[in-house]
Amino acid sequence: MRNVFLFLKRYSIFILFLVLQGLALSMLFSYNRFHQTTYGMFSSEVAGRVNKRVNNVESFFTLSEQNQALRKQNATLLSYLPSGAVIPGSAFQLVSDTVAVDSLKTYRQYQYFDAKIISNSVFLQQNIIVLHRGSAQGIVPNMAVVGTDGLIGTVISVSKNMSIVMSLLHRQSKVIAVLKKGSGLGEVSWDGKDPRYLLLSKIPTTIVAKKGDMVVSSPYSDKFPPGIPIGYVEKIDQDQETNTYKLKIRTAVDFYAVQHAYIVKNLLQEEMDQLKSTLNKE
């Protein structure tokens, strides 16, 4: 027994080192599996508050650009109004965000919450965006986040007033996408090299892809509304082994300057999940 105490006394600092190291590593490795840890909630509340203060100052310098982006989006939205339907704007694509159940009634499928981005990064390998909206405002993980120009990412963790978004610039982010012309299902990921470009893979070469083609979110996704721009084809490469394209695409959203976002709630999500769970039981 005495030897045990002697041992503990002699190596107390080394043991403390191992304990702290173990604590840090266990936090790190459990994080990817359980996003909703108490630490995650605490840290996003505290760091979020500091970030918000600084962001208040920063957003002042980009007011004019933000105004312009919002005005542009206003114009797009105004063109959807019934009164604007006399002369259809040819530049805009109609998005069906309603699900018709019978011919007289329509149901809204997607609800948009506006949110301010209080912290954003592009220089890391796992870039994360913090939004000033959380569970108190009805946000739950797995909701889609879109900007004024296109898709931004997915909510992965929420606290009371903040939510953490995995942006497209995250090494673990994978989004199903289609080419607007000619469709063809593919997968958008990021290679971690340049925050201005994403990779689109798994599109078969039977589909013709041209430089400048728009890449949009797929209609088969259950969280992203269909037809949200993701990027524009910049460079076309072919994977000889699988006969698929490896497309380098320029992001539709300027991740360096993004300030506002909309969180998209799929009102049919619950019903869809329920249907899928019955499939698993059988």
């Binding site: 702290l20 190291q21 840090a24 996003s44 500091v50």
Partner: peptide
């Protein structure tokens, strides 16, 4: 050791990677 752990955790709060920087700081 304790100060470094705290420094690492504060850095982790802003980088949103719990434990990553804390582990390196403790080392």
């Amino acid at each position: 050791l304790f100060i470094s752990f705290a420094v690492g955790m504060v850095a982790d709060m802003f980088f949103k990677t719990p434990g990553l920087h804390a582990a390196a700081c403790v080392l």
